[in-house]
């Protein structure tokens, strides 16, 4: 790892101020992606701004709106009775990220800000119609994920919380890579006030996306059978040493059916 200078932020404003005055700064929360990337020198920030003490952690439900602080860990989301009741698919998704030790450190804000094309959380944000709250504004999930490792965040802007409308009928199914356990395809299905939304991670060559054909089929009949005849279009999907685009297209359909079954 190249050397870096560590700063501990006491609040979101403090973090933004530190980022504004330091060159080549990166925010670190759980660090479960960034620190491995720094060790392999894929990332070499001159300054690291630690958000774990910035008071941005916690889960609350206000009416139908679930708010999750950006530095809330995967273990906290997975273990929260509030999340389990309001949004069971989200709790289930969090319980299958990485391993128990990674879930004790990794955070929801870090995951969505990094927008790894094989990360789990972006699919939930898109399917649930979440709102991403930053230190400057609120961004709809539909506008937030803009490409591989790319988001709508500007320099010095940081995610402070996520707002998710409660959705009892929500489920997630993933096919983990047998070695890395990252999602080779993960599908989040949500049936709520916005209708049925289906979002796919791990498969798209441009990152997370919505599978509109499945949304239409599930809107007329919400059952695994309704998607059994569908096949995702392989043209926009990744092909790599792990799986071809065709294989992933099949996984998208199979995981969608499993996510629907997890709800029913």
């Amino acid at each position: 790892m190249y050397n870096t200078t560590y700063h501990r932020a006491s609040s979101a404003d403090d973090a933004a101020k530190l980022a504004g005055s330091a060159s080549e700064a990166k925010f670190v929360a759980g660090g479960q992606t960034l620190i491995p990337a720094m060790k392999t020198r894929l990332a070499a920030p001159e300054n690291l701004i630690d958000l774990r003490h910035a008071g941005m952690s916690g889960i609350s439900l206000d009416g139908d709106m679930l708010t999750i602080g950006a530095t809330t860990t995967h273990a906290e989301v997975a273990g929260s009775d509030t999340v389990r009741k309001a949004c069971p698919g989200l709790a289930s998704l969090a319980s299958h990220i990485g391993d128990p030790h990674v879930r004790h450190m990794g955070t929801i804000g870090g995951s969505i800000s990094n927008n790894d094309p094989a990360a789990d959380y972006p699919s939930a944000m898109l399917a649930l119609g979440a709102t991403i709250v930053t230190n400057q504004r609120e961004i709809a999930a539909d506008d937030f994920f803009t490409g591989l490792f790319e988001t709508a965040l500007e320099d010095g802007e940081l995610v402070t919380a996520i707002k998710v409308p409660a959705c009892a009928a929500s489920g997630y199914a993933k096919f983990p890579n047998p070695a890395s356990r990252y999602a080779m395809t993960g599908v989040f299905v949500a049936r709520g006030s916005n209708g049925v939304r289906v979002a796919v991670t791990g498969a798209g060559s441009d990152g997370v996306f919505r599978w509109t054909e499945a949304e239409q089929a599930l809107s007329s009949s919400f059952s695994a059978d309704a998607v059994s005849g569908l096949k995702a279009d392989a043209s926009g999907l990744m092909s790599d040493i792990h799986a071809s685009a065709d294989y992933r297209a099949n996984l998208v359909a199979v995981m969608t059916a499993r996510a629907v079954r997890a709800i029913a």
């Binding site: 560590y6 501990r8 670190v28 660090g31 620190i35 630690d50 774990r52 030790h101 004790h104 450190m105």
Partner: peptide
């Protein structure tokens, strides 16, 4: 936690 994936400073 994995102590190889956390800085001493953290």
């Amino acid at each position: 936690v994995k102590s190889c994936t956390m800085l001493a400073a953290q």
